[in-house]
């Protein structure tokens, strides 16, 4: 019995660099990306050093899922 086995490829969430300094720790490593938390999806800018949320805007209701019915 031959067992030629692959692993389904890994995916990654992109983090887009954002200009500015973290007001909490002074780090310049700010990045924008979506997160899922209490209250649903948020588009955040967070400090990658201390995880401080520089901004949190409400994201799409269903995250990455788009409904054709929204185009009616």
């Amino acid at each position: 019995m031959s067992q030629d086995i692959a692993t389904s490829p890994p995916l990654a969430q992109d983090r887009v660099p954002v200009q500015g300094l973290c007001p909490r720790c002074g780090s310049a490593a700010l990045a924008a990306y979506p997160v899922f938390s209490e209250g649903g999806w948020f588009d955040v800018v967070k400090c990658q050093g201390c995880l401080h949320s520089v901004s949190r805007e409400r994201g799409p209701l269903l995250g990455a899922l788009r409904l054709l019915a929204d185009q009616i």
């Binding site: 995916l11 990654a12 969430q13 979506p34 938390s37 967070k46 899922l65």
Partner: peptide, 17 residues
């Protein structure tokens, strides 16, 4: 409760397992 996730952010690339 829903408050369990207040200090937790899930970063979740879509289309994974």
């Amino acid at each position: 409760t829903s408050g369990t996730w207040r200090s937790i952010d899930l970063v979740a690339p879509p289309g994974s397992l």
